[in-house]
């Protein structure tokens, strides 16, 4: 449906905005490497089914694109010259292990098929995605204010989540028996994390 597509497009746009920013400004200052690495982990654990679930060409293609773009971003941040010298590890100080560990435990404990390692990995990726933006938000707070393109990037990620939430409501009403507790609860948590950012983003845009 169109709402879901809008979500995917803003998600994809967020990658391109970030790649544009780090290529154009030659700097990754203010970007959390931890968040970007968590996204690589999210996509790699969620999309292992790319090898056997062929629901549509669109889905398979988007999975490849999401993995490739997230790996590319981490690559430029770690290896790019001069980008790698502009990274601020002292500001990227969020204790990310405390995000990953509970998500692993949750993924093992709460999933759609307790006998399947894939379902555990999949549930883990859903839980981790919900909180993966936290190191980035933490960095924005420590920095004081995010650069324009960085804030557009975060905004697009939050927007993607909002579109997906609306899409779930739509699907629940139009598709018989459509019901996804794990995804909905995690998605709602994820959206809530953006509230404070959204508020400041809109406020600063009004000021400009």
């Amino acid at each position: 449906n169109a709402i879901r597509l809008a979500g995917d497009m803003s998600h994809m746009a967020s990658f391109f905005v970030l790649l544009f920013k780090i290529n154009k400004s030659k700097s990754v200052a203010g970007i959390s490497l931890k968040t970007q690495e968590l996204y690589v982990l999210v996509f790699c654990t969620r999309y292992v089914d790319i090898f056997w679930n062929h629901l549509s060409l669109y889905n398979s293609l988007m999975k490849v694109i999401f993995i490739a773009l997230s790996v590319m971003i981490v690559y430029v941040m770690r290896r790019g010259v001069p980008q790698r010298s502009t990274y601020n590890p002292e500001l990227d100080s969020f204790p990310h292990h405390w995000l990953v560990l509970p998500c692993v435990l949750l993924g093992v404990a709460i999933n759609q098929d307790p006998t399947s390692p894939f379902e555990m990995a999949w549930a883990f990726s859903i839980y981790l995605e919900a909180v993966a933006i936290m190191p980035q938000l933490h960095m924005v707070q420590k920095h004081g204010e995010a650069e324009n393109l960085t804030s557009h990037y975060i905004f697009l990620l939050g927007l993607y989540r909002v579109f997906y939430l609306v899409n779930w409501v739509y699907r629940y009403m139009t598709e018989d028996g459509y019901w996804q507790a794990i995804v909905w609860v995690s998605g709602a948590v994820q959206a809530v994390l953006y509230l404070d950012f959204f508020y400041n983003y809109v406020k600063s845009k009004q000021k400009d």
Partner: peptide
């Protein structure tokens, strides 16, 4: 719907 069929989102 089974678990695999439900995974039609990204």
């Amino acid at each position: 719907k089974n678990a695999a069929e439900k995974k039609d989102e990204l």
